[in-house]
Write a protein that binds this DNA or RNA. Sequence first.
DNA 1: AAACCCTACAACCGCGGCACA
DNA 2: TTGTGCCGCGGTTGTAGGGTT
Length: 310
Amino acid sequence: MGHHSCCNQQKVKRGLWSPEEDEKLIRYITTHGYGCWSEVPEKAGLQRCGKSCRLRWINYLRPDIRRGRFTPEEEKLIISLHAAVGNRWAHIASHLPGRTDNEIKNYWNSWIKKKIRKSSSTSTTNITTPKSSHHQTSQIITHTQNHQLDFLNQDLSTKPQIHHQDTIFPLPSPSFMFEIGSTFDGMTANNASRIDQMILQENPGLNLETWQPNRPHDQMVQFTPLMDNIDNIMVPIEVQNNCGTNLGGGHVAAFDCLQRNEINYEWVDHAQNCPSYFFWDHQAENGEEIIIPSTSSNMGTMLSSFPTSL
DNA sequence: AAACCCTACAACCGCGGCACA
DNA sequence: TTGTGCCGCGGTTGTAGGGTT
């Protein structure tokens, strides 16, 4: 027998939930919570297995669920996220408040069907199903290294919320900045690969002087994510000396325009082929950057405390 | 009016991962 | 270290209800 023999017991009811069953479950969960799902059916007086109760509550009964059609914004977000992470429905759902993984999965599957039907009924060339677009995106992710997408794997529920009106560069949507090239101590740092255009959209017209007048060689680029709830965007970089020799590579975190006082680096020294990390604190200085060495363990802490945009 | 088809979405199933003894 | 129980995830199936023939 497998893990869930409880669902095969004869007394356990299956299939659609009746309004009476819903009422029992709602009454129980709202008064007792749901610490242990396996205990819920008995305590709530239901002839169901705990798993079925959990599913019913999560996907249908919980009060913060959002019903109705997906908005164009939600649809765009789903498409972007799916392009980035594939069929990780729970992860995609975590970016859409009130929507469940099941709902998004169902929506996507019907959307796929529609698209396939549409494309097969029109042209035989240039057919693009979501599956093939995902394949293309996977190649991009591999190329730019998976680390660049670490921000997609974070639990965003506990992140501080920042309001748009606080931004230094007023934009209709949250934005991030990072250096696409900079010069320091006779070395240059460049981002090693192009930014995934499906995830970030460049905002033209940034005033560099406004950013950092004492470092005119720096090239700052401002990007707006095509998805909400993004923080900690990791951009691959390479550093060369003034002869063009590669000194190392790693990732630099793009930093939020709203709180541009933190930059995190993950750095791999090409000569020693070992990772080291440091934290670049802009707030502690007066126009001078101070590099504070740190360990890989507190790197994780810093990344998780990276400011969030909404 | 009845049979059939299609679609949306609710619900189930098996599996992997985790916690704990 | 291993076994067990549980949770959560993603794939899949079932079903209600509306539309079409």
